[in-house]
């Protein structure tokens, strides 16, 4: 049995990687991938917590979270397609007309 702390450390590292990815990249695709990493960390948390705590609901939550991640990815990707079609780029920093 892997200690729960290790799992938490693992997911935290995954989270940190995701955060790093979001911060360092300007490209929308990279960002959604990083977000997926974070969500996957959450899924891992759910799954391990479910098994560790003998809470079967955790597994259900994990699946739900996965589904939500898929939705988000889909919407995000479709918007990126729209963006690249209209602006010719998926660089999110490029859209910045409204500011101040």
């Amino acid at each position: 049995m892997i200690p729960f702390q290790d799992i938490l450390i693992l997911t935290s590292v995954l989270f940190a990687i995701g955060v790093y990815g979001i911060i360092s990249k300007r490209n929308g695709i990279y960002i959604i991938i990083s977000i997926e990493i974070i969500i996957n960390a959450a899924v891992i948390n759910f799954a391990f917590a479910a098994s560790f705590l003998n809470e079967i609901s955790g597994a259900v939550y994990a699946i739900l979270v996965l589904i939500m991640a898929v939705f988000e990815a889909v919407v995000f990707m479709s918007l990126m397609i729209e963006l690249s079609r209209k602006k010719g780029t998926v660089d999110i920093s490029k859209v910045g007309k409204f500011r101040g």
Binding site: F4, F15, A41, A49, F52
Partner: peptide, 25 residues
């Protein structure tokens, strides 16, 4: 508007989900 909203929102959603997972844990 959509790009800004979506980009920031998905990040916050990810954080929220991660937080929920920690709470569950």
């Amino acid at each position: 508007a959509a790009v800004k909203y979506l980009t920031t929102s998905v990040v916050s959603m990810a954080i929220l989900l991660f937080g929920i997972s920690l709470v569950f844990a």
